[in-house]
Simulated assay, not measured.
Amino acid sequence: MKNSLCKIWAVVASVVSLTTAANCTREGLLAAANSYIDAQTSGKPSSLQLIATNFTYQQNNKISDISKGLLSTPYKIDLSRSTADTVECASYTMWISSTGSKPFVVGTQIRHANNDTSTITMIDTIAATTGDLFFDAKKTLGYIKAEDWSPINSTASRPSRDLLKKVGDGYLDMWTDPKAADSIPWGTQCERVEGSQYTNPCGKALPHGGSAKPNGNRRYVIDEESGSVDVLCEFSSLGAWPDSHEIRVIDGKVKYVHTITVMKT
């Protein structure tokens, strides 16, 4: 009887262990994002826990060698911020380096296979620098440092995943769909930072269609706790440019919009 009970508890423990291992946690995602920032600061991608097989590094929508990419050069990071998507087991990190001979504003999505945040399956980076759309890292830094990205602690106040995705898609659809801009719940004090170009309120001077080319190749990180969605894409409406659009929704209204757009690859 004792041996039978021991076997039963061993099976239960095994099931619990497997269930726990299958959970993609916010803490795990943010820890991996922090390790990415540490690797970028040191310029040592070898410090990252990359999956042994089928790892992918993509920079400005092109699959690249991580040892020859942005991560192989150390940068002094003036500001960084990360969000987490436990459904897709992915994170989004924005960082700014405003000093030195080559400043950068970067948006990176990190993805994990099988809900296992202990290893990284993909690093997907959009990296803008001097000469890119409205680029001025010091101005961008000033605008974004002034923003409030406190967590939305009340579950009832958080935007739904569905709303966040609709807002992200609606924004990118404005160039092809004349009705898209009016479908977005703009806040009265919404701030839009496109490169270093600042607009307040966000709902001013928006496109209402006109392009025949949709902005495609969309990859999402949706974080209800921070009320944000980031979409990496190809901004084909203007020129097949690598692009990141991050949007934050507070109390059901768009509060912040950030764009990182690379005009050359």
Score class of each variant (00 low, 15 high):
residue 122 M to R: 11
residue 13 A to E: 09
residue 203 G to A: 07
residue 72 S to F: 00
residue 111 R to L: 11
residue 183 S to D: 14
residue 232 L to C: 03
residue 189 Q to H: 11
residue 79 L to C: 08
residue 94 M to R: 05
residue 190 C to E: 07
residue 42 S to P: 00
residue 44 K to S: 04
residue 228 S to H: 07
residue 201 P to C: 00
residue 89 C to P: 08
residue 133 L to F: 11
residue 209 G to F: 07
residue 120 I to M: 00
residue 64 S to I: 00
residue 211 S to R: 09
residue 244 S to G: 00
residue 218 R to W: 07
residue 51 I to S: 10
residue 22 A to E: 14
residue 123 I to K: 00
residue 19 T to S: 14
residue 192 R to V: 11
residue 146 A to M: 03
residue 36 Y to K: 01
residue 72 S to L: 01
residue 28 G to L: 14
residue 112 H to V: 08
residue 253 K to Q: 15
residue 215 N to P: 01
residue 126 I to F: 02
residue 127 A to T: 02
residue 19 T to D: 05
residue 157 S to Y: 06
residue 38 D to M: 06
residue 133 L to P: 05
residue 229 V to D: 04
residue 201 P to T: 01
residue 146 A to R: 07
residue 168 G to C: 05
residue 137 A to Y: 03
residue 92 Y to G: 01
residue 3 N to E: 13
residue 25 T to L: 11
residue 190 C to F: 04
residue 253 K to D: 09
residue 127 A to P: 05
residue 247 I to C: 04
residue 213 K to P: 06
residue 251 D to N: 15
residue 212 A to G: 11
residue 95 W to F: 14
residue 221 V to C: 06
residue 119 T to F: 04
residue 215 N to E: 04
residue 243 D to V: 00
residue 205 A to Q: 12
residue 26 R to P: 11
residue 261 T to C: 07
residue 126 I to E: 06
residue 42 S to C: 00
residue 129 T to Q: 06
residue 184 I to K: 05
residue 260 I to R: 02
residue 154 S to T: 12
residue 91 S to N: 03
residue 116 D to H: 07
residue 35 S to T: 11
residue 25 T to F: 07
residue 160 S to G: 14
residue 180 A to L: 05
residue 37 I to L: 11
residue 136 D to Q: 13
residue 28 G to Q: 13
residue 27 E to A: 15
residue 17 S to L: 15
residue 16 V to A: 12
residue 28 G to C: 08
